[in-house]
Write a protein that binds this DNA or RNA. Structure first.
Lengths: 412, 412
DNA sequence: ATTCCATTTGGGGATTTTCACAAACTGTTC
DNA sequence: GAACAGTTTGTGAAAATCCCCAAATGGAAT
């Protein structure tokens, strides 16, 4: 009979594990089955031959991130997402990967998961490839069942998350019982992170995001949802002394990967402070929205700031701006300096601003302005004369700095 | 006949000038008559003999301030305000004052003015003294007339000023016609000054204030009024480049004199920015009240600040405080440092505050804290580690400073 | 054209600041 | 009481900053 007609996978099977063993038996090599997010679904056990990457995958119940990264870079995963044919992966010793063959499991235009066959003793033939395609086809239905079950869970989790974000769920007990029913173990402290996209997030992007989040092992994402152009996450925070560093790394990685892998750029990431009390998720969420709003107003000044705590005085800009506008205040020193600049077309204001930005460091300021340090000193002397500014008074300097930044914003 | 019965001043006279000439004729010496505020009311002209002080008085239509100051210090004016007897003043060449005799003009318990007799050729005798007393008595009625006329004007001016302060008088024309009818020439720019007393101002103090203001030649006071414990002034500002200095000197002098001469201490002086538009007096007034309110909250920090412009960041404290309380924000760095201080009973917070107060000057801070400069450096290094503070970032430093001051205030 | 004023740049020395290291001290823990 | 981490102080040399002076530039006013 022709290979195309023979299909050993038509038989019914109860679990994916059983199915994995069946494939392993037919092809005579170790098999692992993953979902679309590289989470381990099943693996063959009849065979003891394996490689380090497979061991890590089985132990961690997911493919290690460095392996995923490597497979992305090297082109295997992109290929699997494109074609329904088996793909051969060469030996990659540096990440403990032997020769293997992979195939994606499709349902219409969507990839549901992957089957991996490791070529330990034998090299798979063309016929084996054909069998693999049949196996992938047979796996489809089983994976679909898993998917729908998960979707239901997902919907519940979405509702739960929004209740938390909007502060509609009070009472610690209620919150924790919800977590439990979702089989999520809430960490002792958390933060809310928001990634703001330039456009509304499409369902295609949603899949990519989901994939990225699930494969990221940097941070534990407890819950996530999408709201127009914002991706909102509930992230568990390690009890480390420097939680900020972890967060920074996580959001940077996410943004970079979204750009590199899917060509989505212009994402603004922010995250909240650390919280212990899960009843304060709404506060954390508001915090992130506030950061986004301020970053929109002062994009340049805050481009390296992703959290409320680090916003510094920009935390206060909205409220100060409001006050200033209400009282029609004008900073006397700045006014004088501005007038002087106009009259003599000098640039005392600019000099002052750079000087304050550079934390009163003469040398750096001079460098930034491309002038001699003595020139700068002279100008500063003039500024203190004309604007009646005492550079030794932190109080005066601060208000000057604030009013300068406010003016800059208002002038735009 | 006895000297007590003979009274050459019983005759009717039309003007004070005529009366001054009459006294001069009787006593055979130059005479000047002043009101209670040392404003020149009349002087004898039949006699050409005089001294420099009298010349200045006549030319300026008031006694020069340095002469007044001298007469206060030396005790003449205090004596005149106590007794109804003539007082002899010795030669004071440094201020151009010859020997002279003065007497106060009384109406019940209030001094209405003074008569001065200059002893150019002759020394006044006991009899002359007696005549002088009679002259003072005769002058009383004439001065009372002037007083009531002035009181009416005063009442109108009070009403006018309050309309301006409360913003109930709009329209430049209307304002200027009011000034004109009060015979006040408004200066091109002005400011509002407020002196806040510790207790409500008594009518006795009111007289003293009025006297001080009228004799002060440092500043031109266009209008003034009293509101409970506040003395409110409309002051004309010179077009000088450094108007602040003048104001500062004026308010200091006023406060010092109120204390020295009348024993009234604890006066808080403030003044507004310079304004050109007389329709904005209400804004200027509000500004002064705002400064007073902030000075009440941060008396120590603002003890050398008397104007809104110089308040620096304290301008913003009320609004920031409000915001912070609304958002339940806590500065992460400060929290960490505070916890560290508690645990190790160190004083990182204090160190940080002094350091920021001293404008990042290591030496001054070390001196203020009574520690070695290296100790300070070590502490700062620890602060930046524990609190995750980057001292090179002005933004971070500012918010730290602000939150520190806010905390200080809230802790009280 | 000349003068005047404000500005820029350079040099060089006095002064301060910075930094690394050593030593001593303190309070805590085992 | 020994060990230890954390803190304070001292020393000295390298680095930087500050400050004064002089010279050059350039624009505006006379």
């Amino acid at each position: 009979m022709s290979p195309n007609q023979y299909d050993p996978f038509k038989a019914a099977f109860d679990s994916l594990e059983e199915f994995a063993d069946l494939i392993s038996h037919v092809l005579n090599c170790p098999i692992t089955i993953e979902d679309a997010n590289h989470r381990l679904l099943a693996y063959s056990t009849h065979d003891e031959r394996t490689d380090p990457a497979r061991i890590s995958t089985i132990i961690g119940r997911r493919v290690p991130e460095k392996v995923i990264n490597q497979l992305w870079k090297e082109g295997t995963i992109p290929a699997l997402l494109k074609t329904r044919e088996p793909i051969r992966v060469k030996n990659m010793n540096d990440i403990g990967l032997n020769h293997r063959v992979a195939i994606s499991i499709w349902k219409q235009e969507e990839v549901l998961g992957f089957i991996w066959a490791i070529e330990i003793d034998k090299i798979l033939t063309e016929e084996d490839f054909d069998l693999l395609k049949k196996a992938a086809d047979a796996a489809k239905n089983k994976l679909l069942q898993l998917q729908t079950r998960k979707n239901k869970k997902e919907e519940h989790s979405q509702e739960f998350f929004w209740k938390l974000l909007t502060g509609h769920l009070k009472g610690e007990k209620e919150i924790f019982s919800n977590f439990q029913s979702l089989q999520i173990s809430p960490s002792p402290s958390f933060a809310v992170a928001v990634f703001q996209f330039q456009q509304n997030i499409t369902s295609k992007e949603e899949q990519n995001i989901s994939y990225l989040l699930k494969t990221s092992q940097l941070m534990k994402i407890m819950l996530y949802t999408i709201d127009c152009n914002q991706l909102i996450l509930l992230v568990s925070a390690a009890n480390s002394d420097v939680p900020f560093q972890e967060f920074d790394q996580f959001i940077q990685t996410f943004v970079v990967k979204m750009s590199e892998r899917y060509g989505v750029s212009g994402i603004t990431p922010v995250y909240s402070s650390l919280y212990i009390d899960y009843q304060k998720i709404d506060k954390a969420y508001k915090e992130t929205l506030s950061v986004l709003s301020i970053k929109e107003k002062f994009p340049h000044e805050t481009k390296d700031i992703f959290t409320y705590q680090k916003l510094g005085i920009y935390q206060l800009f909205e409220v100060i701006l409001e006050k200033r506008q209400a009282e029609e205040y004008e900073n006397y020193s700045l006014k004088k300096l501005y007038e002087y600049d106009q009259k003599h077309n000098s640039n005392l204001i600019e000099t002052l601003e750079v000087f304050l930005n550079k934390d009163h460091n003469i040398n750096e300021t001079a460098k930034a302005l491309n002038v001699h340090a003595n020139t700068l000193n002279y100008r500063l002397k003039r500024i203190s004369e004309i604007g009646d500014v005492n550079f030794k008074d932190p109080n005066q300097k601060m208000i000057l700095y604030l009013d300068l930044k406010l003016k800059r914003y208002q002038d735009i």
